[in-house]
Design a binder for these strands. Structure first.
Lengths: 133, 133
DNA sequence: GCTTCTCTCCGACAAATGTAGTAGGATTCC
DNA sequence: GGAATCCTACTACATTTGTCGGAGAGAAGC
């Protein structure tokens, strides 16, 4: 019961996305970006979200000249991974296969993505064929 | 503000999974399966979860001879899809490509799954090459 | 120096979710 | 038919998350 695995709420994720997309920012910056994205929240709301994110170790802050500057401590890929893992665990008891098949069946891809996909599959094949790691 | 899009909590999802895996069940059945899976909750907790799921229209119940029998009203695939869509929207503003690539890169697959994957990619390729649907 | 603005800190509150207890009706078992 | 059992309904409470207001400290203008 020591380290609790914190989750990200929707509002928190939106804040994190601002940091991913625009780099380090103050509360006021984040607020401006949130507004631009259609999330109309109060200044203190943005502040609370950033504080909570910091408490959960998703961001860190530095006291610059005037106001605190927040920056992400986790990458978008990392969060994606974690969410996918949770999804896979929750829905398929850890088997990622069905999920991927689902995704490929139902989503649209660009030719480039298909190529990349093919590339990855090829790599998987190789791993599978010579299991001496 | 008419129809709220309800979310599924973790505990609720566990209950839904029991119904997916074992078919229609009473509160007691569900409880037994939850216990078997390591989720040690009280009878009334299972009951509350089922009630809430019904209120959210994820399950429905029929009064059989003795106790209510609950059954899922949504498929696992449907829920998966919805969650994936949310994930894609939240993290990549709707672009599924990066997500799939992530998944394939980081998860493990059985040879069978790799084959199926290859099959799907082939189909995608074909679609992409002769765009006359 | 005083007013004003802006920032941080702290507290607050509602909704959703996880968890469970109690009351009372229905069923079953002698 | 009374005791034990099982079911449902209702209530309750803590935590997490989304949202924000007020108090007080430091900046800035005049």
């Amino acid at each position: 019961m020591a380290l609790k695995q914190y989750e990200l709420g929707d509002a928190e994720l939106d804040v994190l996305k601002v940091l991913w997309d625009h780099g380090p920012a103050t509360v006021r910056d984040v607020l401006a970006h949130l507004h631009r994205r259609g999330r109309r929240v109060a200044y203190t709301t943005a502040q609370t979200l950033l504080t909570r994110l910091e408490h959960k170790s998703f961001v860190r802050s530095d006291k610059s000249e005037f106001a605190y500057v927040y920056r992400a401590r986790v990458t978008r890929d990392r969060v994606t991974r974690s969410r996918l893992d949770t999804l896979v665990k929750q829905l398929y008891d850890g088997a990622a296969g069905p999920l991927v098949l689902q995704l490929i069946r139902t989503e649209r891809f660009t030719p480039q993505e298909v190529d990349q996909l093919q590339q990855l599959i090829d790599d998987l094949d190789v791993e599978g064929e010579s299991p001496d790691d």
